[in-house]
Nucleic acid binder design. Structure first.
Lengths: 194, 194
DNA sequence: GTCTATAAATCGATAGAC
DNA sequence: GTCTATCGATTTATAGAC
């Protein structure tokens, strides 16, 4: 492959995604122009189209990659105690959300800007993640260590509660991450009647 | 005031807000054009500027009105049993959210599109609403009927959990509103250790 | 109050040089 | 791979007629 003057493909590619994610999360997909992203990357707008076919593909790639990373990072042990599995899920979800706050925000806010096909693919990935938590809750009920009225609703309620940390968490704030996880585990444990 | 041919001020004003709220919630503030709103209202784009100075003022008005309506609608009884007050809060928050899903969605998603001054005013209103719940939790701890590790975090966690219903609730779905409130009350009661 | 017409700026995306 | 330049469409907001 011939080397071209001024080429920085190795860093422009990842940087494009990083800056797009940050700007989309901060201002919203529709409010961010390709020129604005290009400026943050340090190239001219035309150069971006060597890395993405269009703006929509860029958004979908960010959301799909995030959901796949989330699913790949979660490792459950179906044979362990359901309460211990739930505790691990709480810590995992909070930790992953705080590690990727922009991606989490995007995945909730910009679904409406996806084409119907792209939306369906992201919704499917999200459904699989929710199913992971719902399995834990059903096992807990079966084991008699959890009291839950509706496993599906409790799943959605817990995820909404946990994801909410990204709305107010600030590095160096009043509580550190371990303490936050501890508090939310207390809330989740109580919510499932344990 | 002289009557003008074709004037429909009595309905255009409220309709403008209704359609703007609906479109902003569905597509996002930045993605909706004034022409699109005008078409939904049934006028030409220029006519909208008789009702709002610009697009930003329209968004702020929607958010501010919503937060003020929310605060005005919540009526607490500081002398009642804290658990009963929390139960009322759960029902109220879910009911209000399901009654105004677009406004709730907007108030979470479009804060970033407000000017700094406008943002501060909405954040202040939100803080007052959160304080209303936090008061209940602190009274519950003082009365010994709730066990809470951190009242502030528990407040934010509960509101995030309750607001989440707007993400999946559909009219005529598997569960009716009363049943949903019942399930969420069980979750909230457990979360506060009651 | 609403219309038509338009100003002025910005958008996404492409073409062609290097 | 990146640049400059630009096309064509669309945006917010305003001006002036009615």
């Amino acid at each position: 492959m011939a080397r071209t003057q001024g080429s920085r493909a190795e860093i422009t590619g990842p940087l494009l995604r990083d800056e797009a994610r940050r700007l989309f999360a901060r201002q919203g997909y529709a409010a961010v122009s390709m020129r604005q992203i290009a400026a943050a990357v340090g190239v001219q707008a035309g150069a971006l189209y060597a890395y993405t076919t269009d703006k929509q593909a860029l958004l979908f790639d960010l959301l799909e990659t995030h959901m796949q990373d989330l699913l790949a990072a979660w490792r459950d042990d179906p044979l362990a105690d359901p309460l211990a599995r739930l505790h691990r899920f709480v810590d995992f979800h909070i930790g992953f959300s705080l590690d990727h706050p922009d991606a989490v925000f995007l995945s909730y806010m910009e679904l409406r800007n996806l084409s119907p096909d792209n939306f369906a693919r992201i919704a499917d990935l999200r459904g699989r993640y929710e199913a992971a938590l719902e399995d834990i809750l059903r096992d807990g009920v079966a084991a008699g260590t959890m009291r839950i009225e509706d496993a599906k609703l409790t799943t959605l309620a817990l995820i909404a509660m946990l994801t909410g940390v990204t709305n107010w968490y600030r590095e160096g704030g009043r509580l550190d991450r371990a303490r936050i996880m501890q508090i939310y585990w207390g809330l989740a444990r109580g919510a499932v009647g344990a």
